[in-house]
Design a protein around this nucleic acid. Sequence first.
DNA 1: TCCTCCCTGTTC
DNA 2: GAACAGGGAGGA
Length: 310
Amino acid sequence: MPELPEVETIVRTLGPQIVGKTIESVTTLLPKTVQAGTDLLPLLEGARITNVCRRAKLLLMALRLAPKNQHKPTPDAKAETAAPQGAAYCLPACLGNCDLILAFHLKMTGSFFVHPPGTSPLAHTRLIFDLGQAGRIFFDDMRTFGYCRVMRPGDLERWPFWTSLGPEPLDISPEALAAHFARSLSGRRASIKTSLLDQTVVAGVGNIYADESLFAARIDPRSHARAVPEKSLLALAKALQNVLRQSIEECGSSIRDYRDALGNAGAFQNSFAVYGRKDASCISCGLALASCKLSGRGTVFCPKCQTYFE
DNA sequence: TCCTCCCTGTTC
DNA sequence: GAACAGGGAGGA
């Protein structure tokens, strides 16, 4: 289940293998995997991958089109020049001056691997980007929730999911993140955990890092978001940044399927304090950890160490 | 704001 | 053979 640290790890292991390489052809093995921009797929032929980066849980590939495709009029060319209305975030600098963007969401089981030229698709291969002698990028996804969107920069800036994303939790200071929490959570009736999972509040947090950061900040996940005091929000901001940074350092968490783009597992699962440890003893007080469902997600916490705010 | 759905492999 | 894993869209 790739969240921010796992996607970041995949970016770091995939990028060096494919940046600068040219896509010779694309094979779509599962049509629904390409969720937007199927009409742009032919333009990928001869396109050069100029960068691989991340925003929230999205893996982004920046492409420079082949000269023969660069000035092809596209159906939406006029709209592309119009400034997006109310876009909260502009294009990340890492995309540079690109012509086209591939935006991948790995959801639960998406993964990338670069295979030698001529390798046949595997059981769960959904998309193949053929790089000629440089090999073949496989996008594998057992549960088929993952997707790829082929977008021009203007399409990305008009994509509601993209424009509504909250800040990157590691791009700002803990104080700024805490202040952002205070602003965006005031008046929220939802639980603090539900709010952390909301990508419009903060980008890239999933079930693992929500549970882990709430434990580290000593906040009961069922607490009402609006009731969590500022002091605890600062603790939460620091805790979230700590677990995300530590996980990136350990190349993410491998629960079941997750592997980076070199096939390696992460190690942060060995550091879990609560996630997946229902009924085990709390590392802090020794009491049995409790569990519940929040937003339909399994939630584990320590009823003694984590304070409930109502 | 919360629930259901999407999907398949693993576990109970 | 049912329960479970869960991000996000869409609907109640």
